[in-house]
Design a protein around this nucleic acid. Sequence first.
DNA 1: GTCTATACCTAGATAGAC
DNA 2: GTCTATCTAGGTATAGAC
Lengths: 188, 188
Amino acid sequence: MPIDTKSDILNAAEHMARSTGFDGFSYADLADSVGIRKASIHYHYPTKGDLSLALIGRYRQVFLDRLAQITARDTSAAARLLAYLDLYRDALDGGRSLCLCVALSVTQGALPEATRADLARFHRDVAQWLETVFRLALSDGSIRAVADPKAAAQAALAQVEGALIMARAATDHTRFEAAIDTLRARAI
Amino acid sequence: MPIDTKSDILNAAEHMARSTGFDGFSYADLADSVGIRKASIHYHYPTKGDLSLALIGRYRQVFLDRLAQITARDTSAAARLLAYLDLYRDALDGGRSLCLCVALSVTQGALPEATRADLARFHRDVAQWLETVFRLALSDGSIRAVADPKAAAQAALAQVEGALIMARAATDHTRFEAAIDTLRARAI
DNA sequence: GTCTATACCTAGATAGAC
DNA sequence: GTCTATCTAGGTATAGAC
């Protein structure tokens, strides 16, 4: 198969960023994984900052697309919330991976300003999508105990991200389920 | 003042770990901050793994002591929960810092097994403390919407840790408050 | 587009003098 | 206990040949 090296690199980088963090892999690791040399990686993504930007850009696109699919497919607020949670559960990979958003949020090495901005935008978009879900719940009554949709959205996002980190810290995906259970239980 | 160099080092290390992550500072940074040389830091803490262990050990002791003080001082479940949340809010430092527990949980560089074990123990202890708070709420009725105390504890811990990370990612402490608001609102 | 080779830097860690 | 000096490994990044 003729392949798209750029995509191969991005795939390998995303996998490593999610499992060992963005600072947890080097161009050498990437080169080993893709099967070319370090210098060739630099050809496609001159700096690691460039790589981070490409990574978050693609991720944002894919993730928001999935949210749109959920909106199109599921009509009740409860069904949308559950589908949203499944997105993260699938990303967990048995407690070995974080979603890229959290993996980058947690990165200590200075990311370029453009990447940080994209990350903030991504965060905001997801929070807004969740807010519409909780707003819908106010009228369709399919999620319990929603007072302020905006506050509920912020809370849910924090709970899910925290659950991801707890599960990864323990390398135990059941921790994620346990920490997210109260959220799931609110769906009627 | 004659001083305890070992404590000075630990203080500097804790501050740096919480603001820039455990991988985010070097012995050189530590040396600059304390005002001695790298080799002297190595004298007190031979490896960075040793340092991580000393860090989590002291933190665990201090934090659990504070929880015990809350238990002794506040009698209602609601008051205990609010006091617990204040502990994190104080640790936030305007969105610049994480609690050490999250800062280490999120570390990608391999921590020694002993440190990982202490971290897990710390996590478990805090979750158990929270569980007793929610169990009390079941009888004193001072926190709304508690079904299963254990699930409530896991959820609260995840929400608080997620809120910390969101606030730090945005360098905005109001994010913490916003993400924690539904939890606070449940205290009667 | 991919390679070899290399420059440059920072990190963790140790030896041995004082 | 603290210092200077040094080692080694690894990371990011570039030059220039193929």
